[in-house]
Design a protein around this nucleic acid. Structure first.
Lengths: 198, 198
DNA sequence: GGGATTTTGGACTGGCAAGTCCAAACACGC
DNA sequence: GCGTGTTTGGACTTGCCAGTCCAAAATCCC
């Protein structure tokens, strides 16, 4: 069961085609026939390249979209070492989710796979990476004296991730970015707020 | 198509039985036969009391669970007019979600109905109520001089809702309350922080 | 008590979608 | 070219589940 170069290309085409299809409006319940149609492939190809069937394919798509989430915040997220970088990052996050609207590619695909353990793992890994970037940024800012040392970097990074996550969740159901923006504004203000008594 | 008292009791039993079933571990895809079994009713009863079928029934369950979410935070959420009340409220929220673990009753049922407009509305109404309570609490605290007047009450209430929402979402996939707790701790600290320059 | 109405049981239907299977086309090394 | 392994098409099977239907039992109201 080894794949040739052509085979691998087809496999990739299926993943990306499925991802594109899941990004479309209100995908609802997506069937393998939908994917088949969207990617101009046949049933046997899907099972040939993803022996685990639907679950395996969708997990692959979830990994793909999960990488996109981080990618879309670069280069800012990777180098939060100045107030300017933080500001650009905030704008990138808001812009990305504003453009995306209520359709969240990653959430859509995770909805499809449901509660299998692999899905939780993809989400957990993403959250960790995200939080680690923010944490590094806060520590860097503290090192250069831009953020008060008494601020709990771990707690703050955790709150950032939770706030963004919540803002995006609310965006998905209300189609409003207001909550996402409020959270980011408040958290950035919190970062900037001086030592009490300064 | 009018219902007698007995009929209404059956109808209610179906709603509550379905809610209980949806709270069980990993409900996955819930079928009407599951509900039928869990409530000791027959197919015809379900369609008799919920002519709209699965969608109507599950929306009813969602409304029921949505009320629970607010109820479980009372009486604190309705009277956030002292630091003690805020603290008790925070504890109630954390305790509730810690007890609930990764299974969120409301999220489970909303997962089942999917993207129908009614589902979004139930969620939106809940968020609004929740946010209104918090907003009232902040304004009340400002009125008695416990919170600096320069704090943007609307933005902060919005961030609270987003942060809690995100914390709960993360709890659902990681089974950890850490993010929820970080967010609440940070936001409460933000409420208490003094006027810059005081 | 009796006729009208509501409530209940559960068999049945129809459609849909995941996964299987076989055979045909194709690629690649020799 | 030839044989072996890979890739592709698509018909078919299988099982599931929402929703329908009819008839029996219970209830209500006069």
């Amino acid at each position: 069961m080894t794949f040739t170069a052509k085979g691998l290309a087809t496999r990739q085409r299926i993943i990306e085609g499925a991802a594109a299809h899941l990004r479309a409006d209100a995908p609802g319940d997506v069937t393998l026939d939908d994917i088949r149609r969207a990617t101009r492939t046949s049933k046997s190809q899907i099972f040939h390249y993803f022996p685990g069937g639907k679950e395996e394919l969708f997990l692959e798509v979830a990994r793909y979209e999960s990488n996109q989430v981080i990618e879309d915040q670069q280069p800012y997220l990777g180098a939060l070492d100045s107030w300017e970088a933080w500001e650009l990052w905030r704008q990138a996050v808001v812009a990305r989710y504003r453009a995306q609207g209520p359709r969240c590619p990653l959430a859509s695909v995770l909805d499809q796979v449901g509660g299998v353990p692999g899905a939780a793992e993809v989400a957990t890994v993403l959250l960790h990476k995200w939080q680690a970037h923010i944490h590094r940024g806060i520590v860097a800012m503290q090192a250069r004296g831009e953020i008060r040392p008494s601020l709990d970097a771990a707690q703050t990074a955790s709150a950032f991730v939770a706030g963004i996550q919540g803002g995006v969740t609310i965006l998905r159901t209300t189609a409003q970015t207001a909550h996402l923006e409020s959270t980011l504004a408040l958290l950035l203000a919190h970062l900037r707020s001086p030592e009490p008594g300064d």
